[in-house]
Design a protein around this nucleic acid. Structure first.
Lengths: 353, 353
DNA sequence: TTGTAAGCGTTATCAC
DNA sequence: GTGATAACGCTTACAA
């Protein structure tokens, strides 16, 4: 072959070595920032590389090192806001690292159960970040552990020490929100649950209940509504709640999408927010700022959680020390959708449907 | 070395060959679905592979083929809804292909100008999908062409034949929306522009103007407001518009996020939508369905555009025939935020601030 | 401080 | 149908 100019394709390390009058090893040293290269030599190499528009071949590099420098972000969440926060947090952490991020939107935790390791292997991933609720599938966790695939979970609720994790305290946050409603004088507070498949659903509910119990307020179980974390399910739950003569003076939804649906239902019933009914959400997603009035909610640092999780994953892969569990603070954002309970406590203002 | 069992690491093609009593070439044939492998041999290979949990090493494969099977999606859009639609469209097209998608969220087209090819080369991309407005930067386009990097643009507005493209007709869609408002009897219609850096801004405005001109309605230039495609800029524009005594009876915003902001401004001024003022958006983003009332808008098939663009990119990379330009249809979605113009044409109902 | 040689795990060539 | 063997472009011993 006697290759001289490497016709056609991209320049290789050999081309650069020839052009700079050095060896491929020296070029390799320069491109890997290894010490012991004379400044002048380095300069010559860099010039040749620039002239040839040389970029190291990632595949070759990966092959010889036995590493892919690829990590995967697995998520199931249907909320674009949440997903983008997640991605951005991970991507930002990867900036200036050699690692790259591959996305794995999943239909459901159930559908992925037992397949995740397989997918990771096929894609050559070196590690995985699992967004909720994927990190709560026992089978997935078991598989990943047995397969020795490094992984970090965001906001897991089961087998907390099965992997490094990062999260907020959902129970505590829900308790804080409930306390806020109690402080405003509400006593008939409804709670709309999220997807039963998400463990956050149970946690938020238990925080809600705990706050009521502490305050000595008994809970009317008829005010516990089911939902699926979607706008539509919130709308439906709201309609059911407001159709009742003994409707609540406040509704705490386990996420913002449902809260927005509930707000629409309230308007359908001619109820003013917050004069007739207060509505609280959870997540501080974009949607919470575009309803009118804006939703009182809990800010979850999704971006930060993804950032920290990615950080931990890199440490795990590189076998560096890391925190097994990081707790990030939530924030209660009081906005226009919650206000003083109507006087008379169980007021029934507004037109009925 | 006399390697027998490949200790520690992943199983390789050699391991599979040994275990199945064949050669690596045969294993390779099986895993690449090449013909001329006896069914029985194939079966043996597959069994051995399964037993060993063998997955072909992507890096090695890429190296020898001189291909990365990586494509990049570059976007600048700050709207999570839009971004996720884009990603999903591209990802869905890639399903069951060997290609993988790398994400490149960009700060701005300007910041990327002159760097894009560089980034693509460094990441070893085989091709690129450019979401608006990145596809309108002349320098980027020139560079990509000269560097012979396959790329497809979504909704470009300049140098339309510089690359394969897919889009909708923004001018036509804006004209349709304006016509809808005219049909409802509106004559004082305000237009809120988007980010001047996005070419869609100019197109939508010109569609708006064209419709007015055709209808013989003169346009009061004071009803042309600036915006940035963000919720906040819409809110600000809305406040300016509604503070004026001669406020419009309808507002057409160049996207939904701004329209949602305008709706909030209207409520601040005590204006009922659509009784006092009609509001129209553009994009059919999630936000358009969570305001109250829901926004009349234009459905842009973002998902489909990304899907088609990715499809075209793959064809381009594989040197297969493809359409240089695909036009996708828009859809006018009439929802609750637009209604008949207040009687008396220039009505001024509602309380002022 | 620099260079030589040996792989990394595939696919491609070409003989059998 | 199948199997040696040579690349692919790079990093890592190991010399010099």
């Amino acid at each position: 072959m006697e290759a001289t100019a490497n016709q056609g394709g991209r320049a290789t390390i050999t081309d650069v070595a020839k052009r700079s009058g050095t060896s491929i090893k020296t070029v390799s040293r320069v491109f890997n920032d290894e010490p012991f290269v004379r400044a002048e030599t380095k300069k010559r190499v860099l010039e040749a590389a620039a002239a040839l528009d040389y970029h190291p071949n990632i595949a070759a590099r990966s092959l010889v090192r036995g590493r892919s420098f690829l990590i995967g972000l697995f998520y199931e969440n249907p909320s674009p806001n949440y997903v983008v926060d997640l991605q951005t947090g991970a991507l930002d952490r990867l900036r200036d690292e050699r690692f790259r991020l591959l996305l794995f939107p999943c239909q459901s935790a159930r559908a992925m159960s037992g397949k995740l390791l397989q997918v990771a292997r096929t894609s050559g991933l070196e590690g995985i970040v699992l967004a909720p609720p994927l990190g709560d599938d026992p089978r997935t966790v078991k598989e990943l552990r047995e397969g020795r695939m490094p992984f970090v979970r965001i906001a897991p609720t089961t087998a907390l020490d099965a992997s490094p994790m990062v999260g907020i305290d959902d129970v505590e946050a829900a308790r804080a929100m409930t306390q806020h409603l109690l402080d405003l004088g509400h006593r008939r507070i409804a709670f709309v649950q999220g997807d039963p498949g998400h463990p956050s659903t149970g946690q938020r509910l238990s925080g809600f209940r705990a706050a009521l119990t502490e305050a000595g307020v008994s809970f009317d179980e008829r005010l516990l509504e089911e939902g699926m974390y979607t706008f539509e399910s919130g709308l439906a739950a709201g309609r059911r709640l407001f159709a009742d003569r003994m409707r609540p003076t406040a509704v705490f939804a386990a996420n913002d999408d449902m809260a927005a649906g509930i707000a629409v239902a309230a308007k359908e019933y001619g109820l003013d927010i917050p004069a007739h009914v207060s509505i609280a959400g959870f997540d501080d997603s974009l949607i919470s700022r575009v309803t009118w009035p804006q939703l009182t909610t809990i800010h979850q640092p999704t971006y930060d959680m993804a950032h920290v999780a990615t950080d931990a994953l890199l440490a795990l892969i590189e076998r560096q020390p890391l925190d097994r569990a990081v707790g990030l603070p939530h924030r209660l954002l009081v906005r226009g959708s919650t206000g003083k309970a109507p006087s008379g406590e169980a007021a029934n203002a507004g037109s009925s449907a």
